[in-house]
Design a protein around this nucleic acid. Structure first.
Length: 318
DNA sequence: CCTCTAATAT
DNA sequence: AATATTAGAG
């Protein structure tokens, strides 16, 4: 007991900045993502009821809305929890918490064929808050006026989301920006994705060359995520692709995908804007790690997901 | 402006 | 080692 989510609505009357990105409060935390793709309603049912199977949500649109929402929301969520506030490395401000001794998520090549749908039920997790401040060498500005964002930690879950999105976009449309938007992870930046994408691509290439497994040595991260077969396509003909003209106006993508991820609630009329939201560091972790010695989870809470640090300051520029 | 690849820095 | 950053070409 003791779960009190307090969403205060500050108006910032004085001039203080309090911004905590906790839109995840009532959302399916980024930790447990629902199955990717797949219509929520089987075609048969849909047909029977004459309902359209997810019209044109072009997922991009939806996600875009989510992004806007996030940006808009980012301000007014406090969580006074007495949970453990750990601070990791000097630069990695990642909070890790995960269900401990229970079945975790799917870590296996669970490639569902097409009609299979066995999804386990999971409760929505909440988010935890984390603050960190470790300016390397220099001074500690009480104002905390410029801080570097902590390194993003690509946990298997996060990576999975990444892979899922990439797989669904098709190698062709899987470009940093789109991926980032579709992943819909708070704080994820284009560069984050770009960097990871680069590495991921290299990994794929490496794997292709040696079609044989290389179990022992390989990135554990990538190794634990099965590579979707849709990840090779040239474009053009195949089944997927389509040309994604880059019209900014962007009506919608040629991707007939239903809806990969859980769009945050609420929406705001906003076409598109820059990406000034800050706060970042997504953390979510699951069980085994490398052989280091990571001690922690003392609290053993089942909370864990996005971590952002309350800087309040909006760099607004980057 | 955005992406890609490679090299480099932390 | 894992990410971030930068450079330079497209």
């Amino acid at each position: 007991m003791g779960e009190e989510v307090k969403i205060a609505d500050y108006q910032g009357g004085g001039g203080d900045d309090e911004r905590v990105s906790e839109w995840e409060l009532g959302l399916p935390s980024a930790a447990d993502l629902p199955p990717l793709s797949q219509a929520l309603i089987p075609p048969e049912l849909a047909s029977a009821f004459s309902i359209s199977p997810e019209p044109f949500r072009t997922l991009l649109d939806v996600n875009r809305a989510s992004q806007d929402t996030i940006s808009a929301i980012r301000g007014g969520a406090s969580q006074a929890f007495s949970s453990s506030n750990f601070q990791l490395d000097d630069r990695a401000t990642v909070l890790e918490a995960d269900a401990a001794a229970f079945a975790d998520e799917e870590l296996e090549p669970d490639r569902d064929g097409s009609g299979s749908d066995s999804r386990k039920l999971r409760k929505i997790d909440s988010t935890a808050e984390e603050a960190d401040s470790a300016a390397p060498p220099a001074n500690d500005d009480p104002s905390a006026r410029s801080m570097k964002r902590p390194r993003l930690v690509w946990t298997p879950q996060l990576h999975k989301r990444f892979v899922d999105v990439v797989a669904h976009l098709g190698i062709k449309n899987a470009v940093p920006k789109t991926i980032m938007q579709l992943m819909n992870v708070e704080g994820l930046t284009r560069e984050n994705v770009a960097s990871h994408l680069q590495k991921y691509r290299l990994y794929l290439k490496r794997m292709q060359g040696l079609s044989n497994e290389g179990p022992s040595s390989s990135d554990q991260l990538f190794a634990s995520t099965p590579v979707p077969q849709s990840l090779h396509e040239s474009g053009g003909g195949g089944g997927g692709g389509g040309s994604a003209g880059h019209s900014h106006g962007n009506g919608h993508l040629p991707v007939p995908i239903p809806l990969p991820y859980p769009p945050p609630p609420a929406m705001m009329p906003m076409p598109m804007l820059g990406m000034p939201p800050m706060g970042m560091t997504v953390g979510n972790h699951h069980g085994f790690n490398s052989l280091g010695s990571q001690r922690d989870w003392s609290g053993a809470n089942k909370f864990g997901s996005v971590v952002s640090y309350p800087h309040g300051v909006t760099p607004s520029d980057k």
